[in-house]
Design a protein around this nucleic acid. Structure first.
Lengths: 239, 239
DNA sequence: GACTAGTTTAAACGTTCGTTTTAATCTTAC
DNA sequence: GTAAGATTAAAACGAACGTTTAAACTAGTC
């Protein structure tokens, strides 16, 4: 309801709204939604405490604004690339590795652009994926529904041997590995030994992730009886 | 500092401590650590508010106790199975699909056992993996360090073509897909259409995940220049 | 130079949080 | 039966939270 009137001279002292968004992006990324207080955000942005409720209405709406600012353009770019690929390949299906690129490239481009939050935002996004809060889950599913459906159809055409359900599962697994990787907790240190300087290099990270996911997506269909054998057979608990 | 003395008759009225652990397991799973109050836990467990601090010391220690109760036995079982596989295969390497089974089977066995929290706990674990709180990250990495190192060595022997660093990445991605899947947020509904009744069936889920991850683990090495071409080449943003 | 709409400020609101304290109650051993 | 110790109970602590209020400030407009 509040229209930001930019003065003609356009010499705005780094608008309050943007300073709040920037500070919130960093702090939400570092501490999660629940554990980040409005007081810490407004302190970091050097604005008054009430400014958040004035400009955004509530803490939840601020969080959604932080996500929307980066997410909308990125998802739009994903769909644009996909449609371009489809037009170029028509009437054949787009190869699945290219579809995967259409998902990854906009994320990569965002990651390497400090002016758009850089990797900070990708980490925040990864965390949002795993957050229990219902309003976050609701927000993400509505934000993503259209884009995911679009890509699912593309993969279905490209991988006709996969049943729709199997494809749903594999897309789910893919989003899991992606969001966990983007969240970039120091879980990697559990697995140890990053090359010095390579840490937090989101580009290299995503480039290693892509072949991993492509192989998983195109894997042969599961032999559902296998794990059962393991469970009932030679892997009994030792006692 | 508090020793629980079990009476000789051993007719304990469902010990306070266990009732707290059970209630906490469910509530932490549903709302996450920060958003779950001690008051809601003690109300659900029908015990006094002060009982948590008396028996566990603090909310954080309670959370760790909830995790340890299920995690220690499960990880021990994983290592036991792996060592059995190694003895059986020696001096050859254990095939990587079997190593993967050693990781999955104990989780599956836990998931199908309602007496040990069933899938509730696996969901909580998945959430803990993505939680920002430093004490959770510290706890998990120390808890898992030994087990992960053990499995990494096994995979390294089984997949000699993978460099140690490449293997670290892939294990990371694997843990990502696993924990995201276990967390079982309704993110799946973003991708839509679960078969009725199949939802929340952790067994089927993990059995579909295993082939996906196995294919990713054994994928051919990445061609690092590919994505670069995509970035700089034919996938420019449309303007 | 008052008027207005938009914005910022300082202060307080009511609630909830994790934890602590103090006393009462229960259990076990002699 | 009674003393000692472990457990539960009720109440309060201080701090932090998101949000609201009402006054002060800052342009642009007539």
């Amino acid at each position: 309801m509040t229209a930001t009137v930019v003065p003609i001279g356009s010499r705005v002292p780094a608008a309050t709204k943007d300073r709040i968004l920037d500070a919130a992006e960093t702090l939400f990324m570092e501490h999660g939604f629940e554990a980040t207080s409005l007081r810490s955000i407004t302190a970091a942005a050097a604005v008054n405490l009430a400014a958040v409720n004035y400009h955004f209405g509530s803490k939840e709406e601020l969080f959604q604004a932080v996500l929307t600012r980066r997410l909308d353009p990125m998802n739009q770019e994903r769909v644009d690339i996909l449609e371009r690929l489809e037009r170029a390949a028509a009437p054949e299906a787009v190869p699945s590795d290219k579809i995967l690129s259409a998902l990854f490239v906009p994320a990569l481009r965002l990651a390497r652009d400090p002016l758009r939050g850089g990797s900070n935002f990708l980490r925040l996004l990864g965390r949002a994926y795993a957050d229990p809060a219902p309003f976050i889950r609701r927000f993400l599913s509505t934000q993503y529904a259209a884009m995911i459906g679009r890509f699912k159809a593309a993969f279905a055409k490209s991988l006709p041997s996969l049943s729709p359900r199997e494809l749903s599962w594999r897309l789910h697994f893919m989003m899991g590995a992606l969001s966990y990787t983007l969240a970039g907790t120091d879980a990697l240190r559990m697995i140890e030994e990053l090359a010095p300087g390579e840490s937090s290099n989101d580009e290299l990270l995503l480039r290693r992730l892509a072949p991993f996911l492509l192989a998983g997506l195109t894997a042969p269909l599961p032999e559902l009886s296998e794990v059962n054998h393991a469970l009932d057979g030679d892997m009994r608990p030792a006692e």
